[in-house]
Design a protein around this nucleic acid. Sequence first.
DNA 1: ATTATCTATAGATCTATAGATAATGC
DNA 2: ATTATCTATAGATCTATAGATAATGC
Lengths: 213, 213
Amino acid sequence: MAVSTTRRRGPGRPPKAEAGDTKGALVGVALKLFALHGYAGTSIRAIAREVGLSESVLYAHFDSKRAIYDETMKLVGPQVAVTALDAADPSADPADFIRMFADRVLAAWDTPQARQAISLITRDGLVHETAHTEGTERAIRHLAEVFARWIEEGRMRDDLGSAEDLAYALLSPIAHARLLWLHGGATEERRRAARDRVIRHADLFARTVTVGA
Amino acid sequence: MAVSTTRRRGPGRPPKAEAGDTKGALVGVALKLFALHGYAGTSIRAIAREVGLSESVLYAHFDSKRAIYDETMKLVGPQVAVTALDAADPSADPADFIRMFADRVLAAWDTPQARQAISLITRDGLVHETAHTEGTERAIRHLAEVFARWIEEGRMRDDLGSAEDLAYALLSPIAHARLLWLHGGATEERRRAARDRVIRHADLFARTVTVGA
DNA sequence: ATTATCTATAGATCTATAGATAATGC
DNA sequence: ATTATCTATAGATCTATAGATAATGC
């Protein structure tokens, strides 16, 4: 009765109407499968099958399995998330800045692609590659510079700890929530709980360490 | 000239003098290789070769590759780390308790096996399995109960946030430092920096939220 | 001529099993 | 007889390549 609507493709270049962004589709599917099963747990066969093409088509677009992996890292590597930090206004009221900063970071990290990135990162030991740890350190130092200015200006308490320790106290619970709960397989409910937790944390931190309002 | 000192083993049961804890050795090496390359990235061939035995010997001790993986999880699963939390004395001075608690947790998480566990966990997406996330949640709730008592007794500030939010503010930077820096491949220098950071954080937290001394 | 796909297959590896062999312990 | 190992191999799967085929765009 029911005949599959997906046209069986034969040999030869497909007509223009059917042609799509094969390379982009391959990268997207590869990211999804690497995130689900890890690099070694994903065969190029599985990638091609999911896209609906023959497995050898992959070698028309990439030199090797590794090359397609590298391509996914370009898309979702840590450099993507760092940009969110630079978008905030350090001249704003400290407490408000902190709350807005947390909001922004959450928005950047709770997109479908950012969550697939977390799944990939936590499936291939990439948490421990310098790209990820250095990225985290850089974000902490970056935030610490802002805090150091505030401390100098008397807008942040100076009796609790160094600017860097304070930056760690704010950022690391956010990064931790991301690693644990903002991943590809997380339910919407679980993700909302994580976002709420981060927002409460940022608020607690803002009220504790800033001066006046 | 130089002849290998490792006796080439032939067929047949080895003499008693040479017999060791083969099963234990297989599990230990499997944990190491899974931590290095992930489950799918580790062949039973590689495990057997590292132990110095034929690959088929693995099937004399385990039913399948999956069975040896399950065995490593019994050894280094999250239940191992949770025990450290129950060893502290909640009747101690809050600030001291917090510092000692951080010390204990660090000691439990900076052992070679605990670090291999982290590498394994971050190489197979186990961060997102309930065993790990639930274990983290349980530890937070457990600590929150202690904090709730302190708040009732007036030994901890009640104007900052709920006991659970405070528990998250203390614990999650510690758990985050563990995930990022207390892994199998971390240098001693990197690990010390992580431990120092955690100790400074616990101290900052203790001075900020506890009352009197 | 170039591009995008296919089929077919080489050659490497992987998990798992069958059956032999030699030491152990009853 | 049991235990702990070996060699040899079956059968599945994986990466990668060769060569055919058909639409496209000059």
